[in-house]
Design a protein around this nucleic acid. Structure first.
Length: 322
DNA sequence: CATCAGGGCCCTG
DNA sequence: CAGGGCCCTGAT
């Protein structure tokens, strides 16, 4: 696979809207690992393609929850001009969700029976769309009907065949391909790297991006329903993927309408201490969080996965299909 | 060993 | 709108 050294660098300092929790925002322990990014306390690395440039990003925590500063070092092959940087800066603000004001949420629920103690730990946590919409949808497709290990394997196989490796800051990370490269291959070539029936989804969806069936920038200003309608036109994307996308890529903190079975089991335990509560009851419970209901669920959800990092939780292990 | 459902989705009837 | 099929894998 192609290896590209990124030797030029440029630093930008950002001031996210407080409260901002660096680690809980950038690292989601419930997500499966992917070689396009890496995390350690106070640091995060990810690759990115922007206006035909391969970029490596290094984010560093330079502030506090209430007075946040994030330094991003942008690594590239060649020197980047001023216009490129200006344009990129705006995109980074969006991708890392720096400008969302969630102070109201943490204030409102700091004494909530369920959320109170969680907010104390993770105040300032928010979703980030560190990947583009196309990349995120690829991830959702390999997630469908698969165990964690298989999802990881499929994504890594795809990186190996279509992606590249970017070398920066002592790291070597995978970088996604552009949609046109995947649109032109035969379905069989995808089947050969063991993505199964998803081969057709990956090819068709890449074609749809090439044909501009979707405009991720325009979608950022649309209503939840309008985004749903746009995204459901994509082949291989259904209601479950859309639900994830609305929250993770478009920051719709209120988008909580469907709960897949495994999440139902986990939320039942976390909220009601019972193995299985009807989804209608969970949805009804979440209503108390109003326009922040999905964000609230995100807090409850990620909190248990953070705990799991340093301590095994038997009932949870059972629900995670490794 | 075989069978089956699944961290979905598409297509058919 | 219900239900079969699909690449696989883990559970039974």
């Amino acid at each position: 696979m192609e290896q590209i050294e990124l030797n030029k660098k440029k630093e930008i300092l950002f001031s996210p809207k407080p409260p901002f929790h660096f680690d809980a925002t950038l690292h989601k322990p419930s997500h499966f690992p992917s070689s396009d990014n890496g995390w350690e306390k106070g640091k995060y690395w990810i690759t990115m393609q922007w206006n035909n440039e391969n970029l490596g990003l290094k984010l560093e925590d330079k502030g506090t929850i209430s007075s946040p500063k994030v330094k991003i070092t942008i690594y590239s092959e060649k020197e980047l001009d001023k216009d490129f940087i200006e344009d990129l800066k705006k995109e980074l603000e969006w991708r890392f969700n720096f400008n969302s004001d969630i102070s109201d949420f943490s204030k409102k629920f700091k004494n909530d029976k369920v959320l109170g103690s969680i907010i104390k730990k993770w105040k300032g946590m928010r979703p980030v769309a560190a990947n583009s919409v196309y990349e995120t949808l690829i991830i959702y497709i390999v997630l469908q009907n698969a165990t964690v290990r298989r999802s990881v394997q499929m994504l890594e196989n795809l990186f190996a065949k279509f992606g590249s490796k970017l070398v920066f800051d002592g790291k070597t990370l995978s970088c996604f391909w552009i949609s046109s490269e995947m649109a032109k291959v035969e379905e069989q070539e995808l089947r050969d790297i063991k993505v199964g029936y998803r081969a057709k989804f990956l090819k068709r969806i890449s074609e749809q991006f090439v044909n501009k069936k979707i405009d991720e920038f325009a979608m950022r200003n649309k209503t939840n329903e309008a985004i749903k309608k746009d995204v459901l036109k994509l082949y291989g994307i259904g209601p479950a993927s859309v639900e994830y996308l609305l929250f993770e890529d478009f920051y719709r903190y209120d988008a909580f309408t469907t709960i897949p079975p495994w999440e139902q089991k986990i939320l039942s335990m976390l909220i009601f201490k019972k193995p299985l509560v009807p989804t209608s009851k969970i949805l009804k419970f979440a209503k108390r969080y109003g326009k922040y209901k999905k964000l609230a669920i995100h807090y409850i959800w990620e909190d248990i996965f953070w705990k799991r990092k340093h301590k095994s939780i038997p009932w949870l292990e059972k629900e995670i299909r490794l």
